[in-house]
Design a protein around this nucleic acid. Sequence first.
DNA 1: ACCTGAACACCGTTCAAGT
DNA 2: ACCTGAACACCGTTCAAGT
Lengths: 214, 214
Amino acid sequence: MLAAHQILDTALALVDERGTDALTVRGVAAALDVAPNALYTYFPNRDALRAALVEHLLGELDGVKLPADWPTALRHLAGALRALLARHPGAVPLFVAGPMFGPHGLHTGERALALLAGAGFTPTAAARALYTVLAYTLGFAAMDAAELTPGAPADMDTRVAQRRTAFEAVPAADYPHTHAAASVMATYVTDTQFRSGLDTILAGLARSAASPSR
Amino acid sequence: MLAAHQILDTALALVDERGTDALTVRGVAAALDVAPNALYTYFPNRDALRAALVEHLLGELDGVKLPADWPTALRHLAGALRALLARHPGAVPLFVAGPMFGPHGLHTGERALALLAGAGFTPTAAARALYTVLAYTLGFAAMDAAELTPGAPADMDTRVAQRRTAFEAVPAADYPHTHAAASVMATYVTDTQFRSGLDTILAGLARSAASPSR
DNA sequence: ACCTGAACACCGTTCAAGT
DNA sequence: ACCTGAACACCGTTCAAGT
């Protein structure tokens, strides 16, 4: 007999190995040696399966520790989400299309809001801060995932080399600044770039946290 | 006889009217009263058509004026991108999956980098700043677009009302902070929230722009 | 070069039937 | 309740053929 978690595990394996498009009802069913329509006992349709997979992955964030120091906590949270999406690039389009606000998403969000409230943020400021960090993290992960070919080798050296090749192909005559900056950007390990942007946001938040409007 | 721009116009109309999934080779061909495979004269495959549509839309950013004051310029640029994506929510997944670095994307990027260089940013700092703003804008637009149903009424009053209903459904007992913040967030016109996050980023950038590392 | 008809290997989903 | 066989209306793409 099947079980919902088996279906989700198989779906995740397919997405990780062969990319977003491999997540098909028929493909998952075949991997489970089952008729395609067998899955409809557990999920009403394909989108429900996708949403359940997102929800399943968001569960990993439940274990993230959130220290009382709010910038550190937001760094941990955003870092964990980014790491999660980086581990499953094929799942990123599902997150983008989807329900960040299921039970697990709400639970993590609630923890973050509670933490910010404890740090002196008003409910409004806390919600805005969290939303900003979330949008940045999701957007960054999306651009990151878009660069990865479905079943390609994703080790950092290879990626940096590929980025360099791609960026150096930009004609320096037409795009001088792009060419100059691109040769540097290729060497940025993506983690470094992610933290840089996140630190910028946290610095901005700290500034308004020091003002009366917080 | 067909033309590439006709195909793209039709594809865009389909995406706008019926959502991302309506962008199919056969659907576009049918809308043009043409056999499905006729499109292969102009695009080698479906992904090329999608990429061309993204590129076509990015062309709208060429007209964005970038004043010398860099925070204002970044506000204009990010605002124009967000407005573009808000006008075509069904196209957002294409941007996310896709090639922000075609000719039009490069051109706009180059203009932004030149502007930041003129404001005293090093190539490295300029590239990082632009990437951060881009990630935030794309992530925000993605979450925004995910909320919209394919052919639903998208006027602001309706959306706020729907958001309120959705957020108020969150049980206050389990998620007190979420519930409290959510009732406020529902009333945020999305533009206000977008500018709030963007201002946070710009404030963070201004801080590092004042330091020697810029 | 540009378009069509026909075909291939896929999709998601439904329905009736079996256990 | 859980699964299957068969069918439906779709996909993207290719190939040979026509103009």
